[in-house]
Computed example of a mutant assay.
Amino acid sequence: MKTPVFIQLHHDSAEHIRQELVLGLTANPQPGGATVSPKFLYDALGSRLFEAITELPEYYPTRTEAAIFKAHAEVMARVVPPGATLIDLGAGNCGKAAGLFGVLAPSRYVAVDISVDFLRATLASLQRQYPALTLVGVGLDFSHTLALPPEAGAPDAGPRLLFYPGSSIGNFTPAQALVFLRQVRAACGPVAGSGLLIGVDLVKDAAELEAAYDDALGVTAAFNRNLIYKLNRLVGTDLRLADWAHHALFNHMESRIEMHLVAQRDLTVQWPGGRRAFSRGERIHTENSYKWTVPGFSQLLREAGFAEPLVWTDAPTVDAGRFAVMWAGA
């Protein structure tokens, strides 16, 4: 049986993280105000809360995408190159990719997440299930730059299948998404048959979107408000849970869901070396999730250098879909 290989490329010091968070907290109130990157939502507790979110009746993306893969997996297997290196961006627990091993039959699996520590137990378990499969865990923050190590698969190892499910592309602005997709296109390499398999959440009724990010049980609120504990721990802020409420809204102009923490009273947040006053109702912007149309995202893929994508949705016609999975050849 083979042994997984682990490569940690991302090394953020505690001071660098603190500086990034302070920069967001002190951002100019106009036009955007204070911000925290959504990547900070996913500490140990945040990741468990997100797993709970995916089980909620209001949160459609995870189960809708899974249904698309189940319904169209055999067709996907005919267009995705057999024996490819499957590179899973934001792998997490690796469950989505592993669920496709049987139909996609990769020769190598590369799980990419911000820390290889998140991947060790999962890849050890996968190795026992697939003893002949080469497994590589890469610790990389690709929200800045997608720079894969040679161990991710040299050109002579065959085609590369970049896998980015779950509509995580929605965390990027359209301009950022284009930059990222161009990096993904470059990461596909020169080998014929390489490409990207990606999940994309589509524009739909605002009430359905807002419910998915503000559920009746309050799990998403807990997921968002967990940032208060994290800021206190990493920055030394004196934020109080009772002072901040979760708020989600669909911004029609930007075609995105926004998540915010909203101050419930006038207050001043202090930390070693700094402070910021917040008026009642002022917000800390914690996440965007852009929603796309099939034509709009197809155009973005073409601009990034991909071929015209193949599209599968949860509806009989593509235009009626609520969620899409796209294969874009490089």
Rank of each mutant, 00 (worst) to 15 (best):
H16Q: 01
L119I: 04
R78T: 10
N28F: 15
M259H: 05
G193T: 09
E15N: 04
A34S: 13
V5G: 13
I169R: 01
L227F: 00
D43Y: 03
L209Y: 04
G321S: 07
I114A: 00
R225K: 12
E210R: 04
A73H: 06
A221K: 01
P31I: 13
E20W: 11
A242N: 13
S289A: 14
F40A: 11
A175N: 04
R302I: 01
I228L: 14
V80F: 04
S107P: 15
G33V: 08
Y42V: 10
E282D: 12
K291I: 04
L310Y: 01
E308V: 10
S115I: 01
E55Q: 12
L41K: 00
G33N: 08
S167H: 09
K96Q: 12
V311G: 05
N288Y: 08
L234I: 03
A52N: 01
G83A: 15
V36P: 02
E58I: 08
S298L: 05
D141W: 00
C188G: 07
A304K: 01
H72N: 09
M326H: 06
T64A: 09
D12Q: 12
A14G: 08
L181S: 13
A77L: 15
I257N: 13
V203R: 07
T54E: 10
G273Q: 06
D141H: 03
A77I: 15
P150Q: 09
L178C: 08
F323I: 14
R48I: 03
V79F: 04
V136P: 01
V136T: 01
D113K: 00
G32F: 11
A175P: 06
G137I: 11
A242R: 13
T237E: 05
R256G: 08
H72C: 13
V184R: 06
T173D: 12
E51D: 13
F101Y: 02
V136H: 00
F118T: 09
K230M: 07
I87D: 10
D214K: 00
A77E: 12
G33E: 03
Q299V: 10
S125F: 09
G170V: 12
P190M: 09
I169Q: 02
P31C: 10
M1V: 06
R233N: 08
Q127R: 08
Y60P: 06
